[in-house]
């Protein structure tokens, strides 16, 4: 994907050869575009169904299971979720806090580790790689984890109980490591020759060069933190601190059960509609973050850095 080719990520006017090529759009390009667009539609359509269903009245929805057009239109699901208290607003705040802090910590820890592992000449590389890989296969299970967080670390009812357990994902460490390996050794060596120490190399050279992969890893962590509810459900009972996914899961689970168990509830809650509205609400903010991150997928990794 050279910058001289008329690809959207770079300025298409950069070279004369680019212009002439643009006129002659190859069948491969056309075919690929069509396939890509079709696939994108296949991804979008269920999403559209979810939004549409979230706006459809329960009376129709629970007969058909889903709806393609929101008729009869109904905002009852959303009003049930937002109405009544500031709980959902608080939940958004909690989720944002957890996601931002978590992603920042995770990116730092992961990048540092990935960089060390990627430097094969270091004798730390292999032991660290093994240390990182083992937890992908071996876990002690729920009970020791629970005891660790509640008894040993005393993190009940804090956001840290949700943030800390996911700070390093072995999978993402290896993905990032692979990208770090692509950085030419010559760049590093030329910096060393200039007298920089390892830490300076990392912060002033490696990180700026790695913006694409940092953006990707950061996005993946952000998604993980944003969607995390199970840990929150285990450890956070204080209503003020509950993140969004947990609050919405609670609402769904309890409304379903409340209808069954406690006959004093009058009207049946719109379960189908609520589930759909829940999905829409939880997806929203993260989707907004994604196009923003795309900006970082730019060329220019090693322009002019290599000497000798």
């Amino acid at each position: 994907m050279a910058t001289t080719l008329p690809l959207p990520l770079s300025d298409p006017r950069s070279a004369p050869s680019a212009r002439s090529r643009r006129q002659k759009s190859e069948p491969f390009t056309k075919g690929s575009t069509i396939i890509a667009v079709l696939y994108a539609l296949a991804c979008i359509i269920p999403f559209w169904i979810i939004i549409s269903s979230s706006l459809t009245a329960e009376s129709t929805l629970n007969r058909t299971g889903f709806s393609i057009f929101p008729t009869p239109f109904s905002l009852e699901g959303y009003s049930m979720i937002f109405g009544g208290s500031a709980r959902v607003i608080n939940a958004y705040v909690s989720s944002v806090a957890i996601t931002v802090i978590g992603t920042a910590l995770a990116l730092s820890a992961t990048s540092g580790l990935a960089w060390v592992i990627s430097r094969r000449e270091s004798h730390w590389s292999r032991p660290l790689a093994i240390m990182t890989y083992i937890p992908m296969l071996l876990t002690a299970g729920l009970v020791p984890f629970y005891i660790l967080v509640t008894q040993v670390l005393q993190l009940r009812n804090t956001w840290w109980a949700v943030i800390l357990p996911f700070v390093v994902s072995p999978f993402l460490v290896f993905v990032q490591m692979q990208f770090f390996r692509e950085i030419p050794q010559a760049v590093i060596d030329s910096a060393r020759i200039d007298g920089a120490n390892e830490l300076r190399i990392f912060f002033t050279i490696v990180l700026p060069l790695s913006k694409p992969i940092l953006a990707v890893i950061g996005l993946f962590y952000a998604v993980t933190y944003w969607n995390e509810w199970f840990t929150a459900l285990l450890f956070i009972s204080d209503k003020e601190l509950q993140p969004l996914q947990q609050v919405l899961q609670i609402m769904i689970a309890n409304i379903s059960s409340a209808n069954a168990i406690q006959p004093t509830n009058a009207a049946a809650a719109p379960i189908f509609q609520l589930r759909m509205a829940l999905t829409v609400l939880t997806m929203g903010p993260i989707l907004l973050a994604y196009p923003f991150v795309q900006r970082f997928f730019v060329k220019g990794l090693t322009l002019g850095a290599t000497k000798g």
Binding site: S256, S257, N259, A268, I271, F272
Partner: peptide
């Protein structure tokens, strides 16, 4: 599930 069935 029970609640959906009752709702239906």
């Amino acid at each position: 599930d029970q609640t959906s069935t009752w709702g239906q």
